[in-house]
Amino acid sequence: MGRSIKKGPYIDVKLAKKVDSMEEGGKRSPIKTWARSCTIPPNFVGHTFMVHNGKMHVKVFITEDMVGHKLGEFAATRSFRGHTNKKEGLKAR
């Protein structure tokens, strides 16, 4: 179920402020953040974020299509690369 319309989308206040101040200053450097649950509003487009995935910050460049999604959707928290192949596993030894 979605969030109530009355409240509007959840946008991390501190993060939004940071973006605003950057816009004023005219520079666009990557912003480090832990706010994975923050919804992406239209004015984030064109900025780059370093979204924490639990271990490190993943670079995420915001495009127009990403508006409405949350920052965390673009920084995977799991790194499953498949099970080890039995044959290859033996070769390695």
Partner: peptide, 12 residues
């Protein structure tokens, strides 16, 4: 296709 292109978890 949009979900895939933007590299979101759902697209993955």
């Amino acid at each position: 296709a949009r979900l895939r292109d933007i590299g979101s978890y759902r697209g993955l």
